[in-house]
Simulated assay, not measured.
Amino acid sequence: MYTKPEFTPADPEAAFRLIEQAVFGTLVTAGPEGPVVSHPIFMLERGEGGNGALVSHLAAANPHCALIGRGLPTVAIFMGDQCYISSSWYPRRIERENTDRDNAPTWNFATVHCHGRPQVLDVRETARHIRDCVEHLEAGRGERWHLKELGPGGMKRRLPNVLGFRMPIERLEAKFKMGQDEPWRDTRAAIDRLEDGVDPSLAAAMRRENEGRD
């Protein structure tokens, strides 16, 4: 992934928080006939190795499963806060008789790429993973759903239709493009506009990544 040193997140934990908040990602594996892409949900296991591991599952009928079973090089992609940044938000300059807003518009975003080789889970591990997913995603709901509501044998009947896998993260790339390479007056103006009802969440992320600039 192309990036710049300025786009490295200020907090090393920010990349892991993005994965945990996103949950949903894009899975890309290089197959013999070209890239194969799926869109599963992921659970992050922080305790495995330096970068942890991702645990996920696909429908067993998905052709992607054949590549997962071979442990081929794979990338999981997660997107965080992102938004178009309009030059109309920038203050006008008065330099050498130029009063235009001469900085181009852009798109600010946060993304994380996790590289690794998937390992297929057995049935018991897959069932545990699905339980973990349900517990995580149902947490805090007023009338949450419980896995036991599938009824006797409900889980066992469905497991053959699912392929669970774990992917230790061999390499993690994080790019938080938040205006760090733009003039501070422009970045600050964009933050102000975003805070004013456009995208307060992205504004907060931009403030964090530009802390200390003046």
Rank of each mutant, 00 (worst) to 15 (best):
T106Y: 04
R92T: 12
S87W: 01
I169M: 09
G154R: 10
L72F: 02
G154N: 07
V75A: 09
L147V: 07
L163D: 01
R117M: 01
G142C: 00
V120R: 07
L163H: 09
P152G: 02
H136S: 15
L72I: 03
S88Y: 10
G80T: 10
R128I: 02
F109K: 07
T106G: 03
G69T: 14
R157E: 08
E173G: 12
M79F: 01
S86R: 06
R92G: 11
P91R: 04
A127K: 15
H64N: 06
P152R: 05
R131H: 12
R96F: 12
I94Q: 07
H115R: 13
L67M: 12
Y84N: 01
V123H: 02
P152Y: 04
A127L: 15
H113M: 14
W89T: 04
G80I: 04
W107I: 07
Y90A: 02
A66F: 06
F78T: 03
L72N: 01
S86I: 04
K148T: 13
R117V: 00
R158I: 00
A66M: 01
L147Y: 00
S86W: 11
P152I: 05
Q82R: 10
W89H: 06
K175I: 15
R117I: 00
R101F: 09
H64V: 04
I130A: 12
P63V: 02
P118V: 04
A76S: 12
D100W: 11
N62Q: 01
A104M: 11
W89E: 11
G151D: 11
C133A: 14
F78Y: 11
T99H: 13
Y84E: 03
S88R: 15
I169C: 04
R96G: 03
C114S: 00
L72G: 03
L137W: 06
R141A: 12
E125M: 05
D132C: 11
R141F: 12
A110Q: 14
V112P: 06
N62C: 01
Y84L: 05
P160E: 04
E135N: 14
R124V: 14
A110L: 04
G80L: 02
